[in-house]
Design a protein around this nucleic acid. Structure first.
Length: 748
DNA sequence: CCCGTCGTTATTTTT
DNA sequence: TAACGACGGG
C-alpha cells in the first residue's frame, strides 16, 4: 500500500483516503485527477474492504472509462469487478434489464442524433429539414434537463405549444418503434427508479460507492440519476473542475458542481491545485483570464514545474499570415531546438478554421492530422450498413427500414413503402409495428416490380438471420468470397454478407470513382471492427450498442509524427508541449453574441486551451478574417485584454485600440495598479506618459514602426520599438523628439 | 432516375 | 467561401 500512496502529494492522498461524507474534489487542470480517482478505487477495495461490485464509477467518455478501469486494475486486480462506465453506457445497461417496466423491449436500438432528426422530419413532413434538426436539438436539451412533454418548465426550453405537441408525438413514435435516444438512456432509468421503489432499493443497496468523473459536465438528468441512487449510507465522491465546464450548449449544468455542497449536506471539499503539466507563466495566463468569471468556486493553480518561456501574443494581419506564421514557427523551432511535429498543436474555435492551416501545411509539406472532423459513423455508407443491422435487431425500426429497403433501388417507390408502414400500424397486436410481418402481408397488393424488390430485401434479411444461427451452415459462400470485401471472424461475416448481397457494396463502389474506394474501405473497417463480436443475435446487439455509445473509433493510435489541428473543445483531457491558440478575435473566440453565462463559458474554453500547453504557448489574433465569404475587421479577443501583459511577450503590430482598451476590465485595472510601482516590468504606458504599447512612430532611417515594449530604467522610460523593416531597437523616452518621432497613425 | 443549378446557411458535440 | 439540399429538366 505504501508504494502506491507514496507517489501522491498530500492533497491527493487526502482525497484518496477520504471516507464518509460526500466529497467534492476540485481538480485543476493537470493536477493528477485520474491518478487520484483510480488510486481511490483500488484503495477502497484493498484497504477498506469494499466489495468491488458495489462500486459505480461514471465518466463521460469511453476513453476515460477505459483508462480508469485499466489504471485501477494495475493497482489492484479486483478493481476489474467495479462498474466503471460512461453515464450513457450505465443507463443502457440499466435499461436492458429494467426497461420492460416501462414497456421497453430489451432489444432496443439506440438512435443517434441523425436518426432522431429523420424521425422528427417524418413527423413534420411539410417543414424543412432544418426545422426538424432544430426540434431535435431542443428535445435533446429537454431530456438533458429531465423535462417531459407535460412538464410546465418545458416552456423554458421552448414556449410554443406546438413544440410541446411535437415532443409528445416524438415520444409516442419512439415508443412504438421500441427504440431510445441518448437522452432516454439517462432519463428513463430515473423514471424507473422513481416509479418502482423496490428497484430503487435494489440499486441503492448494490452501489455503496459512487464516483463521478468530470462532474462539471453533468447535466440535470444525470444529477437526478445520482440523487435516486444516493442514500445517506452511500459514499459519494465527485471530481471535476468548474473552470473546465464547456458543454453548456449540450445541457451540461455548471451549477451541479457549484452547488454540490448545498445539494449534499456535509460535503467535504478537497482542492488539487498543484499543476504538473505547465510552466508558471502559462498558468498565469490561464488563471488571470479565468479569474474574470464570476460563477466559480475559486482555485489557484500552482506550477510545480516552475518558471518557463513566456507565452507569446502574436498580432497578425489575416488568416493566411496566421497560417504561415504557425508553419514558420514550427519549422524554425524544429530547426533550432529539434523536437518533433507531435509536440505541436494548433487550436481553433471552429472546425472551419482548419482549412487555411491545412492548405498552408500541405504546401510546405508539414505533416498534420485533423482531429475530430472525420466522423466515421456519420458516413452515408456506414449508416446504411448499420441500418441493415439495426433492422435485423429491431424489425420495428422504421427509420432503418426506410433507409435501406430501397437502397440500392429495388423498384420500391414511396407508395409501396407507405403501404407497408400503414399495414404495420394496423397489424394485429402481436405483430404491430413489425415491418417484416407487414411487408409479407402487404406483398400481394404491390406492383410486380415492387413485389420482386421487396422479396429480394426480405430474403436478404432471412439469409442474414441464418448467419446468426450457429446451427445453420454458412450459406452463400460465393458472395463472401467476392473480391470487394473480405470477411474475417465472427460478426464480420454477417456484415460482409449483408453489404455485398444487398448491393450496397456495388452501389457505393460505383457511386463515385474516387470516393468509391474510400467508401469501400470504410465498410471494410466496419466489418473488421465487428470481427471481435460473435456471430449471434446477442453479439450483433452488443456490437450495435458499442457503436452507438462509443464513436471515438480509435484508429490504431496514429503513430506518425504530425502537428495536431484541433478544436479547443476536442483538446479536453489532452496535453501538448507547444500550443498555438489561433483566431483570438472578438466574434470568433469568443464568438459573437456571447454574453453573461455564455461568455463565461467561452472564457472557460480559453482556459482549457491554455492549460493544454506544457512548455510553450502562443496566442494569435488577426486584424482581418474571411468568414462565410465575408471579410471582417475584428478586434483582438477580449480574453487577450485580460492576459497579464507582464508575463507575455508580444509580436507583430499591436493595434492601438488594443492598448487603449487594456485598462477597461476590472482585473486588468487592478493589475496595472500593481505594476505602477514595480520597476523593470513591462507596462502599458511609459511613466512620462509619452508612449503607449502600440504607439506609432517614425524614424528617418528605419521608417514607420510601433512600440512593442516599455520598461522603466534608471534614466527614465526605456522604449522598445519595432519597425516595418523588421528592425527592432531600444531607446530612452527622452530622445523622443530627436530621432524617434511619435506620430498619429493607427497601428494597423 | 440522374444530373446540373440555384439558393440557403453557416459553433462548439464526451454520449 | 463552400457545401449541401431542393428542385427541375433531360
Amino acid at each position: 500500500m505504501e508504494n502506491y500512496l507514496s507517489v501522491l502529494n498530500p492533497e491527493q492522498r487526502q482525497a484518496v483516503l477520504h471516507w464518509g461524507n460526500p466529497l467534492l474534489i476540485l481538480a485543476g487542470a493537470g493536477s493528477g485527477k485520474t491518478r487520484v480517482i483510480t488510486t481511490k478505487i483500488a484503495y477502497l477495495v484493498q484497504e477498506r474492504g469494499v466489495d468491488p461490485r458495489s462500486i459505480l464509477a461514471v465518466t463521460f467518455t469511453n476513453k476515460a472509462a477505459r483508462e480508469m478501469a485499466e489504471r485501477a486494475q494495475v493497482i489492484d486486480g479486483r478493481a476489474a469487478d467495479a462498474m466503471i462506465r460512461t453515464f450513457h453506457s450505465f443507463g443502457a445497461w440499466f435499461l436492458r434489464r429494467n426497461g420492460s417496466l416501462l414497456g421497453l423491449d430489451s432489444n432496443f436500438v439506440i438512435y443517434d442524433d441523425d436518426d432522431t432528426v429523420i424521425l422528427l422530419a417524418s413527423l413534420m413532413p411539410e417543414k424543412p429539414r432544418s426545422e426538424a434538426a432544430k426540434a431535435a436539438h431542443l428535445i435533446a436539451r429537454a431530456k438533458d434537463y429531465f423535462l417531459s412533454p407535460e412538464d410546465p418548465e418545458l416552456d423554458l426550453i421552448d414556449h410554443r405549444p406546438q413544440f410541446r405537441k411535437l415532443y409528445s408525438q416524438y415520444e409516442a413514435k419512439l415508443r412504438s418503434i421500441g427504440n431510445v435516444d441518448f437522452g432516454d438512456l439517462i432519463k428513463k432509468p430515473v423514471e424507473i427508479l422513481r416509479t418502482f421503489p423496490e428497484v430503487k432499493k435494489r440499486f441503492q443497496e448494490r452501489f455503496q460507492v459512487i464516483l463521478v468523473d468530470e462532474y462539471q459536465d453533468s447535466n440535470v438528468a444525470q444529477f437526478e440519476l445520482l440523487k435516486e441512487l444516493f442514500t445517506p449510507e452511500t459514499y459519494l465522491c465527485v471530481v471535476g473542475d468548474d473552470d473546465q465546464s464547456i458543454y453548456r450548449f449540450r445541457g451540461a449544468e455548471v451549477r451541479n458542481i457549484l452547488e454540490f455542497p448545498e445539494r449534499f449536506a456535509g460535503t467535504d471539499i478537497i482542492r488539487l491545485e498543484r499543476n504538473y503539466r505547465s510552466t508558471a507563466p502559462i498558468l498565469a495566463v490561464a488563471g488571470t483570464v479565468v479569474d474574470n468569471n464570476r460563477g466559480r468556486l475559486g482555485k489557484k493553480l500552482q506550477a510545480e514545474r516552475g518558471d518557463g518561456k513566456p507565452p507569446t501574443l502574436v498580432f497578425l494581419p489575416d488568416q493566411e499570415t496566421e497560417a504561415s506564421f504557425c508553419a514558420e514557427l514550427i519549422q524554425k523551432s524544429m530547426q533550432k531546438q529539434g523536437g518533433s511535429y507531435v509536440d505541436w498543436a494548433i487550436l481553433y474555435r471552429t472546425n472551419a478554421q482548419s482549412l487555411t492551416f491545412e492548405t498552408e501545411f500541405l504546401r510546405r509539406h508539414i505533416p498534420y492530422k485533423v482531429v475530430g472532423s472525420l466522423k466515421f459513423y456519420e458516413r452515408e455508407e456506414v449508416k446504411d450498413a448499420l441500418a441493415l443491422l439495426s433492422f435485423m435487431v429491431n424489425p420495428r425500426d422504421e427509420i432503418a427500414f426506410k433507409r435501406v429497403v430501397n437502397k440500392p433501388s429495388r423498384g420500391l417507390g414511396e407508395a409501396s413503402v407507405e403501404k407497408i408502414l400503414q399495414e404495420s400500424a394496423r397489424g394485429t397486436a402481436l405483430q404491430r409495428g413489425n415491418l417484416v410481418a407487414a411487408s409479407q402481408s402487404v406483398l400481394p397488393e404491390l406492383s410486380k416490380k415492387a413485389q420482386a424488390g421487396l422479396k429480394t430485401f426480405l430474403s436478404l434479411l432471412e439469409q442474414g438471420t441464418k448467419l446468426l444461427n450457429p446451427e445453420q451452415p454458412r450459406p452463400l459462400a460465393n458472395i463472401l468470397s467476392s473480391n470487394r470485401l473480405s470477411a474475417g471472424d465472427g460478426l464480420s461475416v454477417l456484415i460482409v454478407y449483408l453489404i455485398e448481397a444487398s448491393g450496397l457494396a456495388e452501389y457505393h463502389a460505383t457511386e463515385d470513382e474516387i470516393a468509391g474506394t474510400q467508401r469501400l474501405s470504410n465498410l471494410q473497417e466496419l466489418a473488421n471492427a465487428a470481427s471481435l463480436y460473435p456471430a449471434t443475435a446477442e453479439g450483433l446487439a452488443e456490437f450495435l450498442e458499442h457503436i452507438e455509445l462509443d464513436r471515438s473509433m480509435e484508429s490504431g493510435e496514429d503513430s506518425s509524427d504530425a502537428v495536431t489541428l484541433i478544436t479547443v473543445h476536442n483538446t479536453k483531457g489532452l496535453e501538448f508541449r507547444k500550443v498555438i491558440i489561433t483566431g483570438l478575435e472578438q466574434g470568433v473566440f469568443p464568438r459573437a453574441d456571447k454574453e453573461d453565462e455564455d461568455l463565461e463559458e467561452e472564457r472557460r474554453l480559453f482556459y482549457v486551451g491554455v492549460t493544454r500547453a506544457m512548455d510553450e504557448l502562443y496566442l494569435t489574433t488577426c486584424a482581418m478574417r474571411r468568414m462565410y465569404g465575408r471579410t471582417n475587421m475584428n478586434q483582438p479577443s477580449r480574453f487577450l485584454l485580460e492576459v497579464p501583459l507582464e508575463s507575455v511577450k508580444t509580436l507583430g503590430t499591436v493595434p492601438r485600440t488594443f492598448v487603449q482598451r487594456q485598462p477597461l476590465g476590472v482585473a486588468s485595472a487592478a493589475r496595472s495598479a500593481s505594476i505602477a510601482g514595480n520597476r523593470d516590468r513591462v507596462s502599458c504606458t511609459s511613466s512620462d506618459g509619452r508612449w503607449q504599447l502600440g504607439s506609432a512612430l517614425f524614424h528617418d532611417d528605419y521608417g514607420y514602426g510601433q512600440v512593442v515594449g516599455i520598461s522603466e530604467g534608471p534614466e527614465g522610460p526605456l522604449i522598445e520599438a519595432r519597425f516595418e523593416t523588421g528592425k527592432q531597437v531600444r531607446f530612452l523616452s527622452k530622445y523622443q523628439s530627436e530621432r524617434f518621432m511619435r506620430i498619429d497613425r493607427d497601428g494597423l
